[in-house]
């Protein structure tokens, strides 16, 4: 088995401006945030981003890297809407395909199955059809029914984050929900898996039940060890969502000046300096609280 490990800093070399980028996780849960931050440090731009979005979308929008967003929602979970996403929508700075959540998953499944579409009832007679005029319906060959023919979505690159991986890219989730990370990998030409910890293959089986081995190395092209790589989204059971920091992010995002400060403090250095700045944030937060 080949060793697919690579440093985080190498990631931008594999992503070109104009590409379609899938991002795993769900809302503010197990997002490949270290990988997203690495893109913020690069000059990659003009991306079409496909995701069940959280702060990954907010950060990429704030940095002006998104041309088009294909999404089921963009939520921070404990905060219903990402403020940068809201601003991007209200200023009209990004193109969008807003899908019903089930339609979004149908699009992923079709893409992973290399189908041009899969049928679903979701979307019929709703304005999702009007907002996405490329969507067509298909007539059942068996019954008197029409369905929405959700076009399969294919991505150039997918970024996902899992709790553990071996060097070959066998990925394991240890939290309660796999989300749709395996579908993202199968619907993408290339997948980069960041992980809390790269372990020898035998340790995967020892670390959780066989069902936790979500992703086979067949679908993974690069493995990046990135401890706290989902921060500030949650990565159960390794760590929960950093609610205090998320609140800080959401508050800072509402005002250009405070956002500049946030960017200066957290997003100008490398990943190690990000994590150090987060640690500083928490120690000063604690001092204020005591």
């Amino acid at each position: 088995m080949s060793d697919k490990t690579m440093p985080l800093t190498e990631l931008p070399r594999h992503i070109e401006s104009g590409m379609t980028l899938g991002i795993g996780g769900w809302g503010s849960r197990r997002k490949p945030m270290a990988a997203v931050r690495e893109l913020l440090r690069s000059d990659v731009t003009d991306l079409t981003v496909v995701t069940l979005g959280g702060p990954d979308v907010g950060l990429l929008c704030a940095a002006g890297k998104v041309r088009k967003l294909v999404y089921g929602f963009v939520s921070l979970d404990s905060i219903p809407l990402d403020p940068h996403f809201r601003a991007a929508r209200e200023s009209g700075s990004i193109d969008t395909s807003e899908y019903d959540e089930g339609m979004f998953v149908t699009a992923l499944r079709a893409g992973a199955n290399r189908l041009s579409f899969l049928p679903t009832r979701a979307g019929l007679e709703s304005d999702v059809m009007a907002m996405n005029p490329e969507l067509k319906t298909v007539t059942s060959p068996y019954t008197d029914e029409d369905y929405v023919a959700v076009p399969g979505v294919r991505m150039d690159v997918a970024l996902i984050h899992l709790n553990r991986s071996d060097a070959a890219g066998n990925g394991q989730y240890l939290g309660p929900d796999p989300y749709f990370d395996d579908l993202f990998a199968m619907a993408s030409d290339t997948t980069f898996l960041s992980t809390e910890k790269v372990v020898p293959t035998p340790e995967l089986g020892a670390g959780g039940p066989p069902q936790s081995l979500l992703l086979s190395r067949m679908f993974v092209d690069g493995v990046i060890e990135a401890p706290h790589g989902a921060h500030f989204t949650g990565c159960e059971p390794d760590y929960g969502r950093d609610e205090a920091f998320q609140q800080h992010y959401a508050t800072a995002a509402k005002d250009p000046e405070s956002w500049q400060r946030f960017t200066r403090t957290f997003l100008t250095g490398d990943e190690a300096s990000y994590l150090a700045a987060v640690a500083d944030f928490h120690s000063s937060h604690k001092e204020q609280a005591s």
Binding site: F73, S75, L81, E101, M103, T120, D127, V128
Partner: peptide, 12 residues
């Protein structure tokens, strides 16, 4: 003028 939470699962 105001982005809300999105269509979410309502159509389905």
């Amino acid at each position: 003028t105001r982005q809300l939470i999105g269509v979410r699962g309502a159509p389905g």
